[in-house]
Every structure is written in structure tokens, then in C-alpha cells.
Simulated scan of single mutants.
Amino acid sequence: MRLRHPDGSTVHLAYCTNVHPAEDLAGIHGQLSGIAARVRNLLGTERLGLGLWLSQHAAADLLARPEELAGLRERLSELGMEVVTLNGFPYRGFHDEIVKYRVYTPDWADAERLRHTLGLAEILAALLPDDVTDGTISTLPLAWRTGWTAEKAAAVAANLDTAARGLRDLADRTGKTIRLGFEPEPGCIVETTPQATRLLADVDRDHLGVCLDACHLAVGFEEAAAAAGLGLPIVKLQASCALEAPPGSQDTLKAFDEPRFLHQTRSPSGFTDDLGEALAGGLPMGERWRVHFHAPLHAAPPPPLTTTAPYLREVLDALFGGPAPLTRHIEVETYTWNVLPGAPPDLAEGIAAELDWTRRQLAALGLKEL
């Protein structure tokens, strides 16, 4: 969806397709004509924005077969969909039975992460609508924190320089500017926005910046206004909510301790890599917990649990409530629908409800759907 900010600029709202398990082109086309088409119809919108996730296999296939890339672009247009942003964080196998720490590999010290990301940039430049010249890609926050060495830091710095050069070359060749957003996440080398400001201080700011994930910021107990004013370009916002458990209610989180994804958990006095560790005594029960479990934006979990939806509203206000938007790309990224406790949801209805919730929050800030 496209919305007009009061300053006249266009803001793009999309949902992230990493909620879907497809790893190949046939599966991606099935997503588009299936669930994504239903989401568009439920919303009644002229253009449905997609934050496309392409596995390494699918991306390599598109790069090797230009006719498939052209066909994907044509199919998106036929279905009333558009892509201005990619989620380049998961590399492959994002819906395997167990993902956990594997989602952080290959990291930015690995030449394969660089190669894959520059390939995604080539694909995005080809998929952008004719009237859009700027695209964005979100990516992991350099690396998971363990195993970090001076040699690894040097390799990361070299790869970031090469990435910036590649993006500049792409802009010169195509007229399309693709920007890369590193996504601070609890437990990673770039864990918070202050760390991002320090560790990314010397990057090419025309092409490299940050992707703010509201769930991650909430788990870090970061102030919304401070995160929005971190001093680096905000390439993209991932609109997401964390789970929150009030003091003494943590037993109700057991249903969310599932084996596929990593659910970093923080209280005001401590941190664990995963929810199971916290429940086993890693965090004090007498404190409020926030859990990296991307909860639906529009719906509350069973009480006494809540979500950080009020915090997400603060983030939206900080980024879009001022005289000009601080970013122009918003991606609703609730990839956990299939591991929520209880009966399987109607995925299209859930995604449509999240997008509608988000556009209503933006409308309250003065943005109008185009």
C-alpha cells in the first residue's frame, strides 16, 4: 500500500513474505496467487505491498534466469502487487523444524553473505515499479555476538565497504538506489541503536543504514524517540510487537516456548538467549519480561499476557508524526503465525488485519492511503 505523508512524500506499507515457507520460485508464485491475493482482496487496496523474502536458492535461480525475473515482475503487476523492499536476513531454511541460531549464518564476515545480498540488490532493482527509484533490503546486525574477534571485525568492515561500492555501481548502471539496513537485535553484535551508532559510524550513509524492528527495540527496553533519533539513516521500519509478561505471570509464557525460532527474553535486570532458559530460572519471576516472539499487531494474547503494541504506536509516532517521515518503508513482519499456540489461524485474514491496524495508526498521524 502507498500512503501520502502530510509533507507530500510517499510511504510504502508492506507485509513480509518470510511468514511463508516457500524456498523456490514455484512456491513464491503460489504465495502470490494464493494468500497474498486474498490479503489484497480483504483489504480492498489497489496495490498490495510485499516485503519479499527470497531464499538463497530462489535468488540464485532468478539471477541465473533473467526471463524468470521478468516473469515475476510481470506477475506482481498483474496481481496488483508491488515490491520496494526485500527481507535479506534469513538466508535459507527459515521454516525448518529448528532454526534458532542458524538464522545468523552466514554472517557479514562471510563473503557468501556479501554475494547473496548484492544479488538481492540486483533483483530488487529489476522488480521496483517504474515510478519508484529507491529500494531497501534489511539484513542481519553483522553477526551473533559469540565468536567475535578482531579478525572477524576486519572482515566485516571490508565486506561492508565492498557492499557499498556494489550498491553505488548498481545505482550508476540502473538509476535505482538500493539501500541496506542492518537490523539491531538482542544478542547480536549490533544489539541496540546506540551500538549501531557506534559500530556503523563510518559506513557509506548514502547506501547503508539501519532497519528498526519495533519488537527488538521493545525487548531492549529502548525509548522510541531515542531510537528514532539515533543519527544513522533509518532505511526501513519493521512493524512488530513483542510479548510482555507482567511480574509473576511468566508460567503463561510456556505455550510460546517453541523449538523453531530463537526467542530472546529480557527483564529490567537480565537477559537470556531463549525463552526456555528464562523459564528455567534465568530471569527473576518478580520482574516484567519482554520476549522476542513476533506477536500479531492487532490482537492481544490470552491475559495476563500483553504485547508491546502501545510501544509500536510510539515508534510510529516518532517516525511518522513529525514534519517529514524518518523512513519511507514499513514492513509488517509477523513470521510466527504458524507457531502460535492454539488452532491454526486463517493466515490471510490475520495478515490483512495487521496491515489494516497499521494503516489506521498511520491515518491517525495524518497519512492518507493513495
Rank of each mutant, 00 (worst) to 15 (best):
G93V: 03
F221H: 12
L208P: 05
S240Y: 01
G135F: 10
C215S: 15
A157W: 04
G34K: 03
F256K: 00
P259F: 08
A150F: 01
G135E: 11
A364D: 15
L140F: 00
P302V: 09
G30H: 06
H292K: 02
G51P: 07
L62G: 04
G44N: 11
Q264E: 14
W337C: 02
R92A: 15
A26P: 00
K100N: 11
L25N: 05
A22T: 10
T327E: 06
F221N: 01
E82G: 12
L79M: 12
S77N: 04
L212E: 11
L212Y: 09
C241N: 15
Q56D: 14
W337L: 15
T307G: 04
F261E: 05
P21G: 08
L253P: 07
C188R: 00
K100F: 10
A324D: 12
D274T: 04
D251Y: 01
L42W: 02
F94I: 02
K254Q: 13
H294N: 07
K368S: 14
L124C: 10
L365E: 13
R4M: 09
A343L: 08
A239S: 15
P141Q: 10
A59Q: 06
S269C: 03
T146H: 13
T117V: 08
P323T: 14
I330C: 05
G220S: 12
L305G: 03
E82F: 14
S269A: 10
E333F: 13
V83W: 08
P296Y: 07
P141M: 11
L326M: 11
A126T: 11
T193G: 04
R65N: 14
